[in-house]
Nucleic acid binder design. Structure first.
Length: 382
RNA sequence: GUGGGUAUAGCGCAGUUGGCUAGCGCGCCAGAUUGUGGCUCUGGAGGUCAUGGGUUCAAUUCCCAUUAUCCACC
């Protein structure tokens, strides 16, 4: 399923085969939580943005419109008209994200935090407060209905700052859940690739032990989860470096929810193959643009009369047709087009960055590329 | 020309029956955002309260004059 082509130090260049075609690794998945890229980009349009894989979310789609509805409409590929690979997240992250802070801030919706039991998790819907139960079996069945090519195990994404005891117990449960996920996939006779998720907070030894345990299950791929959730950046890379040697070399490795262009380069350098992040689209909607020279805040006055494209060396359709001055204006006038054009550019930038990384690995020049670009790409243009 | 009103941050406005560091919205600047509950959140800069004089312990506030501006009338 996964074929390693070549490597440059720890950085790996490979091909991952799925029911909807091959994926060149390393790659970045474009996040379409509710079966739509936020910012108004349709799935067919992603093909023009060098996107290889779309990521959708189990929890959101289960609540609305319902995974049975999507199944009846032919699954996510037909539903969104995206005929390339799709990965679905398990809903495990929502145990984390719905649990923190209570959600009182801007949404105005005060939900009950999820309750975690051995059987699974009781959520209350962020749409109408309705009580929802999801465990490993439910998550696998939902993802089966959605028709994803790659499905993620149902795990608990542990919040930063939890005690050793909490993390140890949580990780043990995540392992038990993973075994149930695997069994349910067999029962469903699903052809999708099930990925296990490593947890363990920032405790190296718990991480390593957990990784060793789940590696024995011989799954098609493995993810590192529970990072970039508030811990220090040094901790994140420390954990990756600790866990990576225990991740099977012949399986794809996925760092969940990461990250900035710099984070991605640094993680590829440490042996990671797959990424996803809301950053290119969320930041685009807020006026933060990723370019080959670093980050620019397009809303700043300095771009008012700037007739250059967002990124002068970018090949995206937005950079071919629109100026910084125009896009700044769209933000100031609160036009939806601002978020759309910025999202198109940022996604293209991320996908093109991955393409560049793949080429650099093939040419054994990735280390030099990293030296030159890692810092620069995540710094604000002055 | 006469009568009346107004003058407070780049713009639009509050406010003070005279008394702490003069506020708000927009704009501007900066930061944040990492398996999306966010067209979001946090912070910052910027005022001789039109000008000159007077009363008072104390004036952006009260009084007088001047200037600008708006409205009405001749």
């Amino acid at each position: 399923m996964y074929k390693l082509i070549t490597s440059d130090s720890k950085a790996r260049r490979g091909v991952l085969a799925t029911a909807h075609g091959e994926i060149q690794t390393p790659f970045f998945m474009n996040v379409a939580t509710a079966a739509a890229i936020k910012g108004g980009i349709s799935a067919p349009e992603l093909s023009d943005l060098k996107c290889q894989v779309m990521l959708c979310n189990t929890y959101h789609l289960h609540i609305r419109p319902g995974d049975d509805v999507i199944r009846d409409l032919g699954g996510l590929h037909a539903f969104t008209n995206w005929n390339k690979p799709i990965l679905t997240d398990s809903g495990g992250f929502q145990v984390f994200s719905l649990g923190r802070a209570g959600g009182t801030e801007s949404s105005g919706y005060v939900g009950k935090p999820p309750i975690i039991k051995e059987s699974g998790v009781f959520f209350s819907s962020h749409i109408d407060g309705k009580k929802i139960f999801m465990g490993p079996e439910e998550s696998m069945r939902i993802q089966y209905n959605l028709g994803a090519d790659i499905v993620m195990a149902f795990d608990e994404c542990i919040p930063d700052g939890q005690s050793r005891v909490y993390v140890e117990n949580s990780v043990k449960r995540t392992t038990r859940w993973l075994i149930r996920c695997q069994e349910e996939m067999l029962r469903l006779e699903s052809a999708a690739l099930l990925f296990g998720i490593n947890q363990g907070g920032v405790y190296n030894d718990i991480r390593v032990k957990h990784m060793q345990e789940i590696a024995e299950l011989n799954l098609p791929g493995y993810a590192i989860g529970g990072l970039a959730v508030g811990e220090a950046k040094d901790d994140m890379f420390r954990v990756i470096e600790a866990v990576e040697p225990y991740m099977p070399t012949e399986k794809p490795r996925y760092l969940m929810g990461v990250g900035t262009p710099s984070d991605i380069i640094e993680a590829v350098f440490r042996g990671i193959d797959m990424f996803d992040c809301v950053m290119p689209t969320r930041n685009a909607r807020h006026g933060t643009i990723f370019t080959s020279e670093g980050i620019l805040h397009i809303k700043n006055k300095r771009y008012e009369r700037d007739d250059k494209p967002l990124d002068e060396v970018c090949g995206c359709p937005v950079c071919a047709q629109h100026s910084r001055g125009y896009i700044r204006h769209l933000f100031k006038a609160q036009e939806y087009l601002a978020g759309r054009l910025s999202s198109i550019h940022n996604l293209y930038f991320y996908n093109a960055l991955m393409e560049k990384i793949r080429t650099e690995i093939e040419n054994s020049t990735f280390t030099a590329f990293r030296e030159e670009n890692s810092l620069k790409l995540s710094e604000l243009i002055r």
